[in-house]
Structures are given as structure tokens and as C-alpha cells.
């Protein structure tokens, strides 16, 4: 565990807390993509199957449970909470899951480090995480109504990815034989996905304007 990894995980955790607080405090999930949240739920379930088979540390176990629990809480609120679900932008959040899930699944069947159920699902989760934010970004662009908290949520998620890249560089330099090419490439792709958003986020912050993405 190095500082970049810890900061990355904490930023990831903070992003989810921001989203939970926003939805809970405003009783509204306007601007939040249920598709992205459900893709993250798939990512976490597929990746954390090893909760039952492979104990790494108490820290890892606790964080995994928090990520799973918080994501399912958000999905539950957006689908079933009698006040919150009414505020969901159902008609705008139309990105199709299969466009992301099927290519990632096929890729994980071809490109993996071991052809076992656990390993293929783990690899699938790595690929899917790289693109899971896309429905959220599309929704933002469509509604063009980005409140600060939703903007901060996405900014924190992007920051978490950038910190993970620093973590990999640090580990590569300090741990002998540390290599994980599939994770690195997916992680870099995932971070690139945020660059456009970062540009507009920082620009709006510098100009003290409300964040909006060009159509």
C-alpha cells in the first residue's frame, strides 16, 4: 500500500459518499445515470467474487463491502424509493448496456491471464469499469443540467483513476516483477475517457461558471 493507492481509494470512496449524500439530502437523483450505477454494480460483483475465496487484508475486505453496499443502495433508491425514483431522468438515460457489456465480455474471454471463471469475470470487470462512466457522461451532455455535486462526483471518480496510474508507476518502480498490462491499459483508457470532462470542469471552476458540456 502506497500513498497514491490510498489516496486513490479514498477519492473513490469520497465520490460515492458525495453521490449518496446528494441523493439523500435533495431526495433527488436528477442528472444521475442509473445505467452507470448498475454497470458499477456488475463491475463490483464480478471483481469481488474473491471476497469468499481470497482474503487479502481487512482493509480490502471492508472497502469491497462498502463499494458493493453503497452502489446497491443508490440503485435501490433510484429504482424503488417512492420519492427519489420519480426524479430519475428515465427518458434521457437511454444508453444501451449491451453496447458496453458484450464487447467487454468478448474481450475478457480472449484477453485474460488465465482461462478460469473467476479470472475471466475479474478481467471482464476491469474492462467494464473502464467504460462504465459513459452513460453518465452522455446523460450529462443531454440534460445539460449539471449540479455541483454531480460534477464533483464525476471529477472525484476521474481523480481516483489518475491516482491509480501514479500508484502503478510507483509500484512498477519499487516492486520487482510488478506487471499487469491488462489492468494498466484499461486504466489508461478509463482515465482518457475523463479528459474531456476534466477540461470543462476545470474551465467552469476557473471562470466561476456553472458547469455545462457542449452538445
Amino acid at each position: 500500500m502506497n500513498l497514491f493507492r490510498l489516496l486513490g481509494d479514498m477519492t473513490h470512496l469520497l465520490s460515492i459518499i458525495v453521490l449518496l449524500l446528494k441523493i439523500n439530502a435533495t431526495r433527488s437523483c436528477r442528472g444521475v445515470s442509473l445505467k452507470t450505477q448498475e454497470l458499477y454494480a456488475i463491475v463490483f460483483v464480478c471483481r469481488y467474487l474473491d471476497l469468499f475465496t481470497n482474503f487479502i487484508s481487512l482493509y480490502n475486505t471492508v472497502m469491497k463491502v462498502i463499494f458493493l453496499g453503497s452502489t446497491f443502495t443508490i440503485i435501490y433508491w433510484m429504482r424503488f424509493h417512492k420519492v427519489i425514483r420519480v426524479t430519475y431522468d428515465r427518458d434521457q438515460d437511454t444508453f444501451r448496456y449491451q453496447f458496453l457489456i458484450i464487447p467487454c465480455l468478448l474481450l475478457s474471454l480472449i484477453l485474460n491471464s488465465e482461462f478460469t471463471v473467476m479470472e475471466v469475470l475479474w478481467t471482464f470487470s476491469i474492462y467494464l469499469e473502464a467504460v462504465a462512466i459513459l452513460p453518465q457522461l452522455v446523460l450529462l451532455q443531454r440534460t445539460n443540467n449539471i449540479d455541483n455535486l454531480t460534477g464533483n462526483y464525476i471529477f472525484l471518480l476521474g481523480s481516483y483513476r489518475a491516482l491509480y496510474i501514479l500508484n502503478w508507476i510507483y509500484r512498477f518502480l519499487t516492486e520487482p516483477n510488478y506487471r499487469q498490462y491488462l489492468v494498466w491499459i484499461s486504466g489508461i483508457v478509463q482515465t482518457i475517457v475523463y479528459i474531456d470532462f476534466f477540461y470543462y470542469y476545470i474551465r467552469s471552476w476557473k471562470n466561476n461558471e456553472k458547469l455545462s458540456l457542449p452538445a
Binding site: 473513490h12 487479502i56 472497502m63 491471464s113 479470472e119 475479474w122 500508484n167 499487469q180 498490462y181 489492468v183
Partner: peptide
């Protein structure tokens, strides 16, 4: 072999 690495990350 990179199986052991990465699985210790979240």
C-alpha cells in the same frame, strides 16, 4: 504471470 498482482487492488 500477473495473476497475483492487481488482485490486491480495488
Amino acid at each position: 504471470e500477473d495473476v497475483d498482482f492487481g488482485h490486491d487492488e480495488l
